[in-house]
């Protein structure tokens, strides 16, 4: 019986151990690409008393507008049932917009509203199906809100990234959303990864190296260092009220070799996606790091952006031989799906 039970244990645990071994790396990859938890909801966008998305007004919420601000003389503005302004009660002198006068029914617009966090006063760029659709500037607390209206119903690939005050760019945060006709779809929980840079590209072992960038103000920054020689290291620091962080640490404990650093930030129960990865070497001398240039691997025409022009050049060379080296992104002598995949990763729109 004991003999059988031993084999039962082996039979039970061996597959679990085996599968754990193979599942673990996959789990890390999964977490690396899916750090952000997005919430997708729809607004009962007309009739809830709050002006949202493409609405001009909702009930008594007139978005701060009056007849005067709309170009009329009196101030008896009200809201129609379809959440457009009712200007029929305003004294008509100089109407600015022809809509909302109690005329034909205007069907509610199909819209998407994005709520998230980036860096204080940073530029946020929103891509719709890989093309720039809107830009905005984040508030002092790094929060932002953006809206797109007049959309068709269907699947849209939205991507968001931000540029900090030093011009450093976050990675692209991309999500595919099924948009429903006639309602506003709200996407919240967008948490853009902090930016990252190092002050030395090579640091003399035992000297200090600084890792810096920008994120959401007063949040915890988790720094991950990885090296083939010395393994993994983990540090934490915090952003200040401007969202800046600077972590200066001594490299005495690190072995000589090349390191990859990346960070993510947490705020209460929300976590950002991982930042871009940045390299430095622990060696025998100090080399001050050049400020990272906005050069991306897929920027074939060198205009600082990876967009429709670059992908069109790749399409031109697709499945052809004797490809110019600057177009062959993986240097295998031809343009194939791998080159498109590399370009898609560095996409800026």
């Amino acid at each position: 019986m004991i003999f059988k039970f031993r084999y039962f244990l082996i039979l039970f645990f061996f597959p679990i151990l085996l599968s754990t071994y193979y599942l673990l790396p996959a789990g890390i990859i999964f977490a690396d690409t899916d750090g952000v938890t997005l919430t997708v909801t729809i607004s009962q966008n007309c009739g809830n008393g709050v002006t949202e998305g493409s609405e001009q007004c909702d009930g008594s919420d007139l978005s701060g507008e009056t007849c005067v601000s709309l170009g009329y003389t009196s101030s008896a503005l009200s809201c129609n049932a379809d959440c457009n302004f009712n200007v029929s009660t305003c004294s008509s002198v100089a109407p600015i917009t022809p809509s909302g006068g109690g005329g034909d029914y205007v069907p509610p617009s199909t819209a998407v509203t994005f709520f998230g966090r980036a860096y204080p006063k940073s530029t946020i760029i929103l891509l719709k199906d890989a093309r720039v659709a809107a830009t905005t500037v984040a508030n002092d607390d790094a929060s932002f809100k953006m809206s797109l209206s007049g959309l068709s119903a269907g699947n849209f690939v939205f991507s968001i990234y931000s540029k900090d005050k030093n011009g450093l760019r976050s990675p692209l945060l991309t999500f595919t959303v099924s948009v429903t006709a006639g309602v506003t779809t709200n996407i919240s929980g967008i948490f853009i990864a902090p930016t990252i840079a190092v002050d030395k590209s090579e640091v003399k072992k035992g000297d200090n190296i600084g890792i810096f960038g920008q994120g959401v103000p007063n949040t915890k920054i988790n720094i991950f260092l990885n090296s083939d020689i010395s393994g993994e290291f983990f540090y934490t620091t915090k952003t200040d009220k401007s969202g800046d962080y600077f972590y200066n640490f001594n490299t005495a404990l690190l072995g000589m070799g090349r390191y990859i650093a990346k960070i993510k930030t947490t705020l209460k129960d929300e976590t950002s996606s991982f930042s871009k990865e940045i390299n430095f070497t622990v060696g025998t001398k100090n080399i001050i790091s050049e400020f990272p240039k906005e050069e991306e691997k897929g920027d074939i025409n060198g205009d600082g952006r990876v967009n429709l022009i670059d992908v069109s050049i790749l399409i031109f060379w697709f499945d052809k031989f004797s490809v110019p080296p600057e177009i062959d992104l993986n240097s295998d002598g031809r343009v194939n799906l791998v080159d498109f995949s590399i370009m898609a990763y560095y996409w800026t729109g």
Partner: peptide
């Protein structure tokens, strides 16, 4: 973007090759 448009004729295979800039993890919906 289609690297190769999925063109077709009545009796031949359909070849496709496309890209999703930024990546695809699944379609979200309310």
């Amino acid at each position: 973007f289609w690297a190769k448009n999925p063109v077709y004729s009545k009796n031949s295979d359909v070849v496709f090759s496309g890209v999703i800039p930024g990546g695809f993890q699944g379609v979200l919906s309310p």
